[in-house]
Computed example of a mutant assay.
Amino acid sequence: MGEHSTLTVAARGHGHSLYGQSQAAGGIVIRMESLQSVKMQVHPGASPYVDASGGELWINVLNKTLKYGLAPKSWTDYLHLTVGGTLSNAGVSGQTFRHGPQISNVNELEIVTGMN
C-alpha cells in the first residue's frame, strides 16, 4: 500500500446488514462475535442496565437479564443478532411503537473507529 492509500475496515456480527454494511471490498472484515468473550454484566439496581459488547447476541442479553426478572425494553424480532449490528440500524422491532427503537434505550455507547 502506498503512502496515501486507505484501507476499508468493516465490522461484521452475523452478517444481517443493510446495503453491504458488513462488507469491505478489497478491505478487512472483522468478526465481532469474538467480542462475546467480554464479560456481560447486568446491573439490576433502581435504574437497571446491562453492559454488553457489540458482539454479544441479543438472546444472551435476554437470558442473562431474565435471571434478574428483567428484560430489554426493545429488542429485535430475531434474537440471534448482535447488539452492535442492530444498534447500527437503530434496532426497529415490534416493541418500537411503545418503547422506541433499541438505540433510543441506550444510555451510553463506546464507538471504536480504528482511526488515530
Rank of each mutant, 00 (worst) to 15 (best):
H4N: 14
T6Y: 12
T8K: 15
R12W: 07
G13R: 00
G13H: 00
S17K: 04
S17A: 12
Y19A: 15
Y19V: 13
Y19M: 13
G20K: 04
S22T: 12
Q23N: 10
Q23D: 15
A25K: 13
G26H: 03
G27R: 00
I28W: 05
M32D: 07
L35V: 04
S37Y: 11
K39F: 10
K39W: 05
K39H: 11
Y49H: 15
V50N: 03
A52H: 00
V61G: 02
K64Q: 15
L66N: 15
K67G: 06
K67M: 12
Y68V: 02
L70D: 01
P72V: 05
P72S: 07
K73C: 11
K73T: 10
S74A: 15
D77K: 06
Y78R: 10
L79N: 05
L81A: 11
T82L: 02
S88V: 03
S88E: 03
S88K: 03
S88R: 00
A90L: 15
G94L: 13
Q95R: 11
Q95V: 04
F97L: 15
F97Q: 09
R98W: 07
H99M: 08
S104T: 08
N105I: 05
E108Y: 09
L109D: 03
I111Y: 02
I111C: 02
V112A: 09
N116L: 14
